[in-house]
Amino acid sequence: MPLSLVVLLVSLPTKEVTAQIAIAEVIKAGVKKVIKALDLRVQRLQNETIWLQNAQKVLENTLSKLKLTEIADWTNRQKELYGKYFDELVRVKAAITYYQRIRDITQRQMDIVAEYQRAKSLFSRDKHFSAAELGLMEEAYSGILDASLKNIDQLLLVVNSFKVQMTDAKRLEIINSVAVRMEQNYQDLKRYNASQVSVSLSRAKEARDLNIVRRLYGIE
């Protein structure tokens, strides 16, 4: 057998492994970019929520100082003036309600990132997964995280809707839709991680190191 052919056959597996690792690193870098984008968007939504929480305090203090029953004694001009004022307060109150719901959704988004980071750390320490398999996991995570990023973008659309025209019904439709999809993303991630743990436990049983793997994942 020619020496060049021997070298090729010997080096081929190494090249394949190197390629798999390189691909995994590219995917990992993509996931990091998605997480960074998520962090920036979530921070923006949290800042908006804090602003509205402060606005709520001002609103409630103002309303506590006013007695709506006194409006009946005012002139028509006063009624019109303060009527517009209270209409604006009601609109702000509705916005605060939206943002409280948005805050809950962004918390679920942070749960998704935390679950990803936890699982990634554990799987990377599990000797029952190859570099290629870890790369496939990153690809699956990338898809889930990217989907949740699009959900955050939808919430930002609701944020911006208070600067442009959008009906309350449309806002609620978007928020409810995002909440459902975000929860689905989270449950998909949990199920995927659970399935990978099951794979590891099965392999550990065959390798007779089941107790080591159970301790790794905190399984009693």
Results as ranks from 00 to 15, higher is better:
Ser121Asp: 13
Gly135Phe: 11
Val158Ile: 11
Ala131Leu: 07
Phe129Cys: 15
Phe162His: 06
Leu149Phe: 15
Ala179Met: 11
Met137Ala: 10
Thr106Trp: 04
Leu136Ile: 12
Ala147Met: 04
Asp146Gln: 15
Ile174Glu: 14
Ile152Met: 01
Gln109Tyr: 05
Leu122Ser: 04
Ile175Cys: 12
Leu157Cys: 09
Ala169Gln: 15
Ser121Glu: 13
Glu115Tyr: 06
His128Glu: 13
Ile105Asp: 01
Ala169Pro: 00
Gln117Asn: 14
Ser177His: 14
Phe123Tyr: 06
Ser124Ala: 14
Ser142Asn: 10
Asn151Trp: 05
Phe162Gln: 05
Tyr141Arg: 03
Ser177Val: 04
Ala114Leu: 13
Ser121Pro: 10
Asp111Leu: 10
Val178Ile: 08
Lys150Met: 14
Arg181Asn: 14
Ala114Gln: 12
Val158Asn: 00
Asp126Gly: 02
Ile152Gly: 03
Ser142Glu: 02
Phe129Tyr: 15
Ala131Ser: 09
Ala119Cys: 08
Phe129His: 04
Arg181Thr: 09
Ser142Pro: 02
Phe123Leu: 13
Asp168Ala: 12
Glu133Arg: 06
Met182Arg: 06
Ala114His: 12
Ile144Phe: 08
Lys163Gly: 02
Asn151Cys: 03
Ile112Gly: 10
Met182Phe: 00
Glu139Pro: 03
Arg118Glu: 03
Val159Arg: 11
Arg108His: 09
Leu134Lys: 01
Lys150Phe: 15
Tyr116Pro: 12
Gln117Arg: 15
Ile144Lys: 04
Ile105Pro: 00
Ala132His: 06
Arg118Tyr: 05
His128Gly: 00
Ile175Lys: 01
Ala147Gly: 02
Gln107Asn: 13
Thr167Val: 09
Leu157Ile: 12
Glu115Met: 10
Glu173Trp: 12
Ser161Ile: 09
Leu156Ile: 05
Ser130Ala: 06
Glu138Ala: 00
Glu139Tyr: 08
Lys170Arg: 10
Glu133Ile: 00
Ala114Phe: 09
Ser121Trp: 04
Gln154Asn: 14
Gln165Ser: 15
